[in-house]
């Protein structure tokens, strides 16, 4: 049968366990004395001897031992509370994407969440130490500004045209040109089945769409709602198709399997890369979609307000 003293001893011991070693004894000694004072006063007020229930009632005012210890020794949160929103978005969307991309690997989602947690924890730690000015907020024009320099908007489109569009279209030719005719391109030879596959057609169409959207945005001197939405959709399409490339290819009719490259080594190397790049593209596009949904443009507006 526990006495009131046993309850207090147990509580003090548990609180002390959460404190830094050099503080433990001193705080525990004082806390025990204070709790004994409080208990004696409570017992006197109630006109009876202290018992276990009375001690438990007293301690409920202090909270769990971990909470009491945190008041003596405040701890910094592992992730800044202000970052909870972003952390949840990256963790949830990322784990959903990894579950879809690699359903066989059941640990992939957990590994992703762990990685995101570690990233945010390191950022929080660096911010507290003020080690990096780069982590401070800085004004930006946003990824897709409504008014932007035409060459700057066109540049990513041209880059997409060179890589990956041109490489995907004719990998051997692309490699020969990129290496000024010195590189061996035989390993990049495509199979006939892949050359005439719907997967290749849809991927090329998606990449061409991405290039066309950048060109249109450049022509308009900046991004509009339609071009932002179209780019997100096109990137989702291309990312999804790359993920499809990471699995054994199937013909539309007959569901027969075929490979992308004639070389088995090239297939073995390329397929995981397709999956990774496709997964990252899906993740980034979903994040862009979220940013688009949360976008306030060009200035906050009152909807349904009768008067300003």
């Amino acid at each position: 049968m526990m006495t009131a003293g046993d309850v207090i001893e147990s509580y003090v011991r548990d609180v002390a366990g959460y404190l830094p070693r050099k503080k433990r004894n001193d705080v525990a000694f004082e806390l025990r004395a204070l709790l004994q004072d409080e208990l004696a006063a409570k017992a006197a007020a109630q006109g009876r001897a202290p018992d276990k229930e009375m001690a438990m009632d007293l301690l409920s005012g202090f909270g769990r031992p971990a909470e009491a210890a945190a008041r003596y020794q405040p701890r910094s949160p592992l992730i800044d509370p202000a970052d909870n929103h972003n952390f949840l978005i990256w963790a949830i969307v990322g784990s959903l994407v990894f579950s879809a991309v690699d359903p066989q690997n059941r640990l992939a989602s957990l590994q992703w969440v762990g990685g995101v947690f570690l990233w945010f924890a390191v950022v929080a730690w660096l911010r507290r130490r003020r080690a990096s000015e780069r982590l401070h907020w800085r004004p930006t024009r946003g990824l897709y500004p409504e008014a932007a320099s035409r060459p700057l908007v066109l540049l990513p489109g041209l880059a997409t045209l060179v890589f990956p569009f041109a490489m995907y279209l004719a990998p051997q030719t692309w490699w020969r040109i990129a290496t000024f005719g010195t590189g061996k391109s035989s390993g990049l030879a495509l199979t006939d089945a892949f050359l005439h596959s719907w997967q290749r057609g849809v991927t090329l169409a998606g990449l061409a769409l991405v290039v066309a959207i950048y060109a249109a945005a450049a022509a308009q001197g900046g991004w509009r709602t339609w071009s932002r939405h179209a780019l997100i959709a096109a990137n989702l399409l291309v990312g999804g198709m790359l993920v499809v490339h990471a699995a054994p290819m199937l013909t539309l009719l007959g569901r027969q399997t075929f490979t992308i490259f004639q070389s088995q080594v090239a297939n073995d190397v390329a397929m995981p890369i397709f999956g990774l790049v496709g997964g990252l593209m899906e993740l980034a596009s979903l994040y862009d979609a979220y940013k688009e949904w949360a976008r306030v443009s060009p200035a906050p507006a009152l909807h349904g307000a009768g008067s300003a």
Partner: peptide, 11 residues
Amino acid sequence: IEEGTLYPLLR
């Protein structure tokens, strides 16, 4: 003042 608030504050 709640005891759980006051004593840590003194520290």
